[in-house]
Design a binder for these strands. Structure first.
Lengths: 167, 167
DNA sequence: ATTACTTAATTGACGTGTCAATCATCAGCC
DNA sequence: GGCTGATGATTGACACGTCAATTAAGTAAT
């Protein structure tokens, strides 16, 4: 392997790093702007929104805890903590599942359903204003394509990191 | 204003929404992968890293608290909490500033400097592996360009949101 | 049926982030 | 000096996220 050849380089070049920083800071700003909007228009957090959305789309407005976790890509424990908080606010309800009584069924309350309906439209408007409206159609297409490929790459490389020669 | 004309539409189309979701999930996965890598290789969080980096680059390895906050784009209170934790771990030190004794000077300890040196290379390697290596050069360029424009747009629109007709 | 293993979910501890309230100091003014 | 208002930073309360440990219930082997 050649020293200083492109494939042997381990750290990003200054130019690459600049793009990385630009990306990270923008992603963070976007995340925060959306979270603030959601909070101020409807009093829900992004986490609340994800849970309410998934339950709203589910048959009978209820899901097994594990299925819900899988669906929104959360760790079990994170979901458990979050559901506890949402249950205290009356947005959802938990009950033991009939078929497998280890499992819990998470169910949207009427209040939760109402809250989701109220938060959805303002949230989507903000997604449009903050994200879609900023982008030319070809940029939007490019983002979708690049994000998909980034994610695939990330999964591949993440596997390596667990194996002996990975880090 | 025409109903259902493009400019009057408020919510994203399903296609636009799909790109948005792809983007959000990828950004989140990337964030998390980097954080986990940083944690496991050097025992520092992304927040720690940001603070250590800024102080490492500062003259005399020290900065006014407010300057540091500005530099890394954090709220004062967030920084204050974080510095408290870092001070407990011996990574930084705080002392009253001479010129304006409201202000605090934040100073990197030797241990903090060592920790940053140890964490920097592995972190940059991961940035390369997870981000740069996944992208064709023209994609990287596109990301930089799009991120910049997104951020500009976000700042403009955020201002409107504070004014009477904004939300 | 008891033992052992696995799986579903919760819990506790602790680091992180935000908001509002507070404390201390500085600057201008009388 | 002694107000007053702005500014730098901290604090407390509470929501959020991760990790490791735990509880509870299902499954398999003997």
């Amino acid at each position: 392997m050649e020293h200083s050849s492109k494939s042997a380089r381990q750290s990003p070049t200054p130019d690459e790093l600049a793009v990385w920083r630009e990306y990270v800071e923008t992603a963070e700003a976007l995340r925060q702007a959306l979270a603030a909007g959601l909070q101020s228009t409807s009093g829900v957090s992004p986490g609340d929104y994800a849970v309410l959305l998934a339950l709203s789309e589910a048959h009978g407005h209820k899901l097994r805890s594990s299925v819900l976790a899988e669906g929104i890509g959360w760790e079990r424990s994170r979901l458990s903590h979050h559901l506890g908080r949402m249950e205290n606010r009356g947005l959802i309800r938990r009950r033991k599942s009939g078929s497998d009584s280890r499992g819990a069924e998470v169910e949207l309350t009427d209040d939760g359903a109402r809250t989701f309906r109220a938060s959805s439209a303002p949230h989507l408007r903000l997604v449009r204003r903050f994200f879609i409206d900023a982008l030319a159609p070809e940029d939007l297409e490019a983002i979708g394509r690049v994000a998909k490929s980034l994610r695939r790459h990330l999964n591949e490389v993440a596997v390596e990191s667990v194996s002996p020669d990975g880090g």
